[in-house]
Design a protein around this nucleic acid. Structure first.
Length: 478
RNA sequence: GACCCGGUGGACAAGGGGACAAGUCGCAGCACUUUCAAUGCUGAGAUCGCGGGUUCGAAUCCCGUCCGGGUUACCA
């Protein structure tokens, strides 16, 4: 059995998106589970779509998530370079091989000619494909056109009357007729190869064992098989992943959805949750487990449990999952990751013990990282009371509670949980109040809102001094 | 249009001839709690796209059909 080598081959046209991440993740998981290698290859063969900084951004996103590659740009292995624009000679040499063997030919048709041809075919209800008008050009004619500097491309000559069959690791046996495949352009007029040529050549030389890619490539697989055959190469194992869908069931696109991985990170989703969620979009273990760390996924993942049908990218479950990680990751981790959001909100906290207490209370009720910051305001700031709450605080019973605490609190340090409990009990008994009548005014005075953590936690976060001060303030105002 | 790939509750999905079709998210209710949240429990929600066939028996196999998606570029 050949060693497992898989590659994630994005084109640098923007940020890493959810669909790309899913492919990369499955590549990674499969490689790890098979003790193989995960390779990152940049397919920058379309100069017009190239976005500067995209390569760096792609790599940094992958690193941020911990989906690390074994070979790729900046991590050169024996098959370097891993950027296609740096491998042009290799593609040209192989295009020449095809030209020599007659498996490829020059085509001088302009895009206008091509468009016209297609329109005519369409009008006649014919199958739209290149009509091979340049195939009949004599060697001399080709030579003459080349010398006069005519723009040209190199096309693959697909076989006639040929049926392609292959076994996809996920879909099983798939068959397609060669007549359905166009004579694909291999080298464009700007001298760059198309995806088809470059990918097949690189997959071969980089010794890729499994081509794991989105289902949108399924229909062009015959071209890739044919190219391999022309070169006399063994084909890799094809693995076509189901597409990730928008809520309208079309292929997930940046147009309609927020699909950038960075943007989810920025919104405060945890990488653990994103990875876990994306892994489950098209893969499911035999048991009922849904929560997995990256390492656990590496141990459990297998291609044969990848689903065949496309899955809709639905945020509600991601939110739930993020909540799970908010609560179950080590407190220090969550605290540390919330720090940038505190800074961004202009609320730097120097007291780490207070911060960690706040985060401990907040993460129990928040689904996203920045929500911790909002939740912390009740402790870090003195919130303005709602009008109705102000009224409530003015009531006689409310004032009795506050007055009672105002005199008792200073005598009661330290305010640990037991003390807070006993004080509360004592106050309720001596004032003849209970439940909301007791708690609500106290909460309002302490944190400015009626809902929040339990009393001992509040006292612990605020500290005795601040707690007393807040109560006294509401006493006077009342 | 043609060719390919799909189709199990709103979403993710298990199950690939034999229990009243798992589980998770979401939703509703209850419990716990001073509150919110978390958690736990309960419930609603699917004649397995539809129609035929094979079979004692089909979500599972076969045929047809419908629907959805992908491809049909000098984009990947």
């Amino acid at each position: 059995m050949k060693p497992v080598r898989v590659r994630f081959a994005p084109s640098p046209t923007g940020f890493l998106h959810i669909g790309g991440l899913r492919t990369a993740l499955y590549d990674y998981l499969f490689a790890k589970s098979q003790k193989g290698k995960f390779i990152l290859r940049i397919e920058d063969t379309d100069q017009s779509r190239e976005v500067s900084g995209a390569v760096e951004s792609l790599i940094s996103s992958l690193h941020r998530l911990g989906v690390d590659f074994d070979e790729g740009p900046g991590c050169e292995g024996e098959f370097a370079p891993y950027i296609q624009s740096q491998r042009l000679t290799l593609y040209h040499q192989h295009a020449q091989l095809l030209l020599d063997s007659g498996d490829a030919y020059h085509c001088f048709c302009s895009s206008e000619t091509l468009t016209k041809m297609r329109e005519e075919q369409q009008a006649k209800g014919e199958f739209v494909k290149y009509d091979r008008r340049c195939l009949s050009l004599s060697k001399a004619e080709v030579q003459q056109k080349m010398e006069s500097g005519e723009k040209h491309v190199i096309r693959l000559r697909m076989p006639d009357n040929h049926r392609f069959g292959f076994d996809d690791a996920i879909r099983g046996h798939v068959e397609m007729d060669a007549s359905q495949s166009d004579d694909q352009v291999l080298i464009k007029s700007d001298g760059f190869p198309t995806y088809h040529l470059a990918a097949v050549i690189d997959d071969h030389f980089m010794q890729i064992s499994h081509v794991i890619r989105g289902e949108e490539w399924l229909s062009s697989t015959p071209k890739h098989i044919w190219l391999n055959q022309c070169f006399g190469w063994e084909t890799p194992i094809w693995v076509h992943l189901p597409l990730i869908l928008s809520t309208d069931r079309s292929k997930l696109s940046k147009r309609m959805n927020d699909v950038s991985v960075e943007s989810y990170l920025a919104k405060g989703y945890l990488k653990e949750a994103i990875l876990n969620f994306v892994a489950l979009l098209g893969w499911h273990s035999a048991d009922d487990r849904e929560l997995y760390s990256l390492d656990e996924l590496c141990d459990t993942f297998s291609l044969d449990r990848v689903t065949k049908s496309g899955a809709i990218f639905d945020l509600t479950k991601l939110d739930w999952m993020n909540g799970q990680y908010m609560r179950n990751l080590p407190l220090d981790t969550i605290t540390e990751r919330s720090l940038p959001y505190f800074q961004a909100a202009g609320m730097p906290i120097d007291n780490t013990s207070v911060l960690s207490k706040i985060v401990a209370a907040a993460r129990e009720r928040c689904t996203l990282l920045p929500e911790i910051v909002e939740y912390s305001r009740m402790f870090l700031e003195r919130l303005e009371l709602e009008a109705s709450d102000k009224e409530l605080l003015k009531s006689i019973d409310s004032q009795r509670v506050l007055a009672w605490f105002s005199t008792e609190l200073p005598k009661s340090a330290p305010l640990d949980a037991d003390k807070v409990h006993s004080l509360s009990k004592l106050c309720m008994e001596s004032l003849g109040l209970k439940g909301k009548a007791f708690y609500t005014p106290l909460r309002l005075a302490l944190i400015g809102v009626a809902h929040g953590p339990d009393l001992p936690t509040i006292f612990s976060i605020l500290g005795e001094e601040e707690a007393i001060s807040r109560i006294n303030l509401k006493c006077e105002q009342g």
